[in-house]
Amino acid sequence: MDITPEDAKLVTLARASRARTGARHGAAVRDQDGRTYAASTVELPSVKIDALDLAVAMAVSSGATGIEAAALVADRHPEPIVRGTAVRDLSGGGVNVFIADPAGDVVRVGTT
């Protein structure tokens, strides 16, 4: 699947975040100003946050008011990760979420 260089960067950032922490998921988002934020799933006894939701939270905490695109890297790609994401809360519908396997190959493009 062909994607733009900016979207490929999101996949690369998501892959790196996941690999660095060994988490189930890695994610990255690009805000309305072109800034990127990457995160991995956090699973602690007191808090569990999916990577995509955390990347959005990081963007919001840095002043982002919208998300242009997102990427999620995981072994499996259950649809609820995309449907229930904070991306929709911040930006509404129509935002592409590039879902990739651990090798970085985009296997599907979800839309919020």
Rank of each mutant, 00 (worst) to 15 (best):
G94H: 05
G26W: 11
H25M: 09
A8F: 03
A103N: 13
A74Y: 02
A39T: 08
G104K: 08
R30C: 14
L54I: 04
A100G: 12
D89Y: 01
I49F: 08
T36A: 07
V97Y: 02
N96E: 15
D2M: 09
T12N: 11
T4V: 03
G84H: 03
P102N: 12
A51L: 02
S61W: 02
S61F: 04
E79G: 04
S46P: 01
L72G: 09
R83W: 05
V60G: 00
E68G: 03
Y37A: 06
A28C: 10
A57R: 11
S62K: 14
D2L: 10
A19G: 11
P102M: 08
R24W: 05
G26K: 15
A103C: 07
G84D: 07
E68H: 10
A71D: 10
A71V: 10
D2Q: 14
A71E: 10
L10P: 01
P78S: 06
K9L: 15
A16C: 05
T111N: 12
L54K: 08
R35D: 12
P78R: 11
M58G: 04
P78T: 06
T36P: 04
D50Y: 01
R30T: 13
P102R: 13
E79N: 05
I99M: 15
V95P: 00
R24V: 10
A28V: 08
R83A: 13
R108I: 06
L44G: 04
D50R: 06
G92W: 00
T65E: 15
T111C: 06
V47I: 11
A103P: 03
A38N: 10
V106M: 14
A70S: 11
T36Q: 14
I81G: 02
D89S: 01
S46D: 14
G92L: 00
H77F: 06
D75W: 04
G92I: 00
D89A: 01
I67R: 08
V95A: 01
D7T: 02
V107I: 11
V87T: 02
M1D: 15
P78L: 04
D7N: 15
R18S: 11
V95D: 00
G94D: 01
G66Y: 02
T41Y: 09
R18G: 13
A59F: 00
K48S: 14
